[in-house]
Simulated assay, not measured.
Amino acid sequence: MSEVKISAEPRTEFGKGGARRTRRAGKVPAVLYGHGEKPKHIALPAREFAAAIRHGGANQLFAIDITDGTQALALTKAIQRDPIKDTFEHVDLLLVRRGEKVTVDVPVQLVGEPAKNTLVMHEHDTLSVSADATRLPESLEASIEGLEAGSHVTAGDVTLPQGVELTVDPETVLVVVSAAPTAEQLDAEAGVVAEEPAAEEGAEEGAPEQPTEAAAEQPVQA
């Protein structure tokens, strides 16, 4: 993964109000920390940061040029997003050095097609690995080509790039391949659901719901 150069400026306003003003100015509030240094609060340009994350993923490496004259090499450690606006609320950046090994979770992509009439179930969609901070893989591939029902793919089955090491048990199951349900099985399940009574025997249609015994015992407050 190549590093992305990005500019930043120190932040002097903190708290929710300061963060909102930073975002309204088209910037993302962020904090730099690591290597025993005092955390440094900065603001990143939102558009450039978003483009880098879309291209490089959550483990993007940044070469940060801060307007106070300092520079930093950092990895995205945690990203907070607005679930409605899909914008970046805050970013934690971990300081790293060239040649330093770091541990990150890398997305696993499935390649190939399993045997017919099978279902592929994900147990884990990321894999924890250790690698040089400047040579982190953007993703890893796990092959499911031709796998029959009853097969599985483990962490140890994934081919890792040179210099990348697993930090989890190689027997960790990533993918399980099972037999797809037959039409008869689907029909049988549908039949069981259809035969279930719509209401309990003796219940009157349209009758109001009765409170549970526990609820009925609660005292009424004036």
Rank of each mutant, 00 (worst) to 15 (best):
A78E: 15
I79V: 15
I79L: 15
R81A: 01
I84M: 12
K85F: 00
K85A: 12
T87Y: 09
T87D: 15
T87L: 07
H90R: 11
V91L: 13
G99Y: 01
K101E: 10
K101Y: 02
T103Y: 02
V104Q: 07
D105R: 14
D105S: 13
D105E: 10
V106Y: 12
P107A: 02
P114D: 04
P114N: 05
A115L: 04
K116P: 01
T118D: 06
V120E: 04
H122N: 09
H122I: 00
H124M: 11
D125C: 03
T126E: 07
S128A: 14
S128T: 15
S128M: 12
V129T: 06
D132K: 13
A133P: 05
A133N: 09
R135P: 00
R135Y: 06
E138R: 14
E138Y: 02
E138M: 08
A142N: 13
S143K: 10
S143Q: 05
E145F: 03
L147C: 08
L147T: 02
A149Q: 11
A149D: 14
V153F: 09
G156T: 01
D157T: 01
D157P: 10
V158Q: 15
L160A: 05
P161W: 12
P161D: 04
Q162H: 08
G163E: 01
L166A: 03
L166T: 08
T167Q: 14
E171T: 11
E171V: 00
V173K: 07
L174P: 11
V176W: 03
S178V: 04
S178K: 10
A179N: 08
A180V: 06
A180K: 15
A183W: 04
D187G: 03
A190Q: 09
